[in-house]
Design a protein around this nucleic acid. Structure first.
Lengths: 100, 100
DNA sequence: TTTACAGATGCAAATATATGAATATTTAGG
DNA sequence: CCTAAATATTCATATATTTGCATCTGTAAA
């Protein structure tokens, strides 16, 4: 349980911007594919989700920018992975709430 | 852990729309004020957050519409409360992830 | 039944986000 | 160096969200 100090607007902005990063069907799908510490390249995600390469890169950039994902370049590929594996709980929590 | 069937686009849409409902600084603040089963009126929230009455009502409507909150009218007041108290964990989870 | 309070809704302007085509950048291999 | 593959970026357009004023609706009390 957080106290009133933790409700300050800066923290609210950060929490909301992180949530906003995740709150898109494509980006929720990306998170689910990365559950359990998996690492995928842009091309793999672009193939898995059937969306344009540039669109994929945009979405991954948003997730990385907001601290949801990390990336590591290995040769020509860039691997993306969850910064905090616990974040995938968010989606599971929501899905539990919607399955009644 | 969810299987591939649970990644279908309908579920993704639902999860994303619920997250989108929460993903706003005002609405995150509302959630935090309603933690622990608390019930607050529109006016109370409007005073707590220092935002316009109509803006408050719009935000609460979004949260209710997307299944995050419930409301009950009692006389002239409408009390809003969390539909699933577990949802407040989402914000706490995020804040833990951002406090390193 | 009038009045005032609490809340909801319609609307418009400002702002933000999403998408993809085109293009640029980075890297490995020849 | 030249090329091709993988990824990132720029840009424009389309769409969605946010905010608050004005207004409408519902309720209680006088």
């Amino acid at each position: 349980m957080l106290n009133i100090q933790e409700l300050d607007s800066n923290r609210l902005e950060i929490a909301a911007s992180m949530l906003k990063a995740i709150a898109h069907p494509v980006r929720v799908a990306v998170l689910k594919h990365l559950e359990g510490g998996k690492k995928l390249t842009v091309t793999e995600i672009h193939d898995l989700l059937g969306i344009e390469q540039s669109t994929t890169s945009h979405h991954l950039g948003i997730l990385k920018d907001k601290g949801v994902l990390c990336s590591r370049r290995e040769g020509k590929n860039t691997y993306y992975y969850l910064k905090h594996d616990i974040l995938s709980q968010i989606v599971d929590c929501l899905q539990r709430c919607t399955c009644e």
